[in-house]
């Protein structure tokens, strides 16, 4: 049994090593984009079952963004929604025999956390400009600037660690149990892993919304205050 902390390259594209997580990620991307295309091509004013599920997903996502971030959903829907759908699909990909979820690998979770970190900057700058975003670190007072800077990094790191720890541990435990017991024994643990995967996807998306909303709110507030002064 290989260590879950290590990524083994299956093959190389030039100097670039292609790991199993990348391949599974590509498969998930193909699945999601293909499903999205199917839904897109079948969009109708009178929705079928697939379209109804898709619209339910969009509605739920919009409601979550509206309730959590207190902003209009369209600007954030694609990023938050894709994070949730991708992490959920990646977590549940462990149900496919022989497939290790990409979120069980540190690089994938780090990439997701990095994107959240960058999106906070991106949306903060869009909401309050560069000055407004940077000024958001000085709230509630400039003394808090070092702590706010550290917090912006550590909270993204916490995302990484939380998702990686939960998914990796689930896969690791199932692997251990599977190696020790029969074929049917890990099934309860796999069911629990499904629940854990859904909860972790939800937590990751909600925390991403909270981080973005916090920065957007503070940057927008500082920007508005500066405009009032000018």
């Amino acid at each position: 049994m290989t260590s879950p902390l290590e990524s083994t390259a299956l093959f190389h594209l030039g100097p670039v090593p292609i790991t199993g997580a990348v391949l599974v990620t590509w498969a998930i991307m193909a699945l999601l984009v293909g499903g999205g295309l199917i839904v897109r091509l079948r969009l109708s004013p009178r929705p079928g079952r697939v379209q109804a599920v898709a619209e339910l997903l969009v509605d739920v996502m919009d409601d979550q963004i509206r309730e959590t971030m207190r902003v209009a959903p369209p600007r954030y829907r694609a990023f938050i929604g894709t994070l949730f759908v991708f992490i959920l699909t990646a977590n549940w990909s462990s149900l496919v025999p022989g497939v290790e979820p990409p979120t069980a690998k540190l690089e994938t979770d780090a990439a997701l956390a990095l994107l959240v970190f960058l999106s906070v900057i991106w949306f903060g700058v869009r909401a309050g400009g560069v000055g407004g975003y940077l000024a958001s670190f000085s709230t509630p007072n400039p003394v808090m600037i070092p702590l706010n800077v550290i917090e912006s990094v550590t909270r993204s790191f916490s995302l990484l660690v939380r998702l990686f720890g939960n998914v990796m541990s689930g896969v690791f435990v199932i692997g251990i149990v599977l190696s020790l017991a029969g074929l049917l024994v890990p099934i309860p643990l796999m069911a629990l892993d499904l629940l854990t995967g859904a909860v972790q996807a939800y937590i990751f998306a909600v925390l991403a919304m909270v981080f973005i909303a916090e920065t957007v709110g503070e940057a927008g507030h500082v920007s508005a205050k500066n405009e009032d002064r000018s």
Binding site: F79, G81, L115
Partner: peptide, 22 residues
């Protein structure tokens, strides 16, 4: 390398799903 590829993958996925789904 994997970190970079996964970051790009997710970015592309965000863009594709935004265009074809959301």
């Amino acid at each position: 390398w994997t970190l970079a590829i996964q970051t790009i993958n997710v970015l592309i996925l965000v863009w594709l799903l935004a265009r074809f789904f959301w």
